[in-house]
Amino acid sequence: MSPAADPLAATRQWVETFVVPRNICPFAGREVARDTIRYVAVDAGDWERALLALVAECERLDETPAIETTLLVLAPGLEAFEDYLDFLEVAEALLVDQGYEGTYQLASFHPDYCFADAEPEDPANFTNRSPSPMLHLLREAGLEQALAHYPDPEAIPERNMAALREEGHDALDTALARLRGQA
């Protein structure tokens, strides 16, 4: 099966060929090299089952310290960005409700991601655009440790936005479309 036909393979390829080379997450390369990223497909057509899968992944991380982070690929389902944002809000509330606040946090990614204060064509949106809708489940302790050893972590978002704007919307859109099998 080609990466474009397999959402997990496309996501792995996105991390390795889009995120890491552009240094969008300065810590991703280390985790790729350590093979500590777990990739999980979740059918998000049924929100209840998808949310149960999120809690199950928190429990797996509790039990498996060798896994640093999990990417929950929400395919099929949640193709509409507004639906994804509604799901994300429920997922974040569920983490709090289950007692995971301060232990895990969610980073959000979607093929049509658009920051509230940005135009859809702004290349800066590609910091959070991915081949499929997904939730990135991060260990807060690991994130805090990585940030403590990184110079000027507050500048990461601005640096990413500037670099992606320099690369340009068309080039980024083509790269992402290729990963989704649309180029």
Rank of each mutant, 00 (worst) to 15 (best):
A162R: 12
D6P: 15
L85G: 00
G99F: 00
A33C: 08
L143W: 02
S130D: 09
F18T: 04
E144M: 10
T174K: 11
R178G: 09
R30L: 12
Y150K: 08
V20K: 03
L78Q: 12
S108P: 01
A183S: 15
E121N: 06
A53E: 10
Q98F: 03
R129C: 12
T69E: 02
G45K: 06
A66M: 00
V96F: 06
P26S: 05
L95F: 01
L51V: 07
L106R: 05
E121V: 11
S2D: 15
V20P: 15
E140Q: 12
L172W: 04
R165W: 06
L72A: 04
F87A: 11
N23K: 10
E166H: 10
V32G: 11
N125Y: 04
E63T: 13
E82M: 11
V20D: 04
E31W: 00
C58W: 00
G99M: 00
P111T: 02
D112P: 14
R30W: 08
R159Y: 08
A5S: 13
D112S: 14
L176D: 09
R60P: 13
E154G: 14
R159G: 07
T69F: 01
T11E: 06
A177I: 05
L137N: 12
T174H: 14
P153I: 07
Y100L: 05
E68D: 15
P157M: 06
P133E: 00
A118P: 03
C114D: 02
A171E: 15
H110L: 05
F126D: 07
P76E: 01
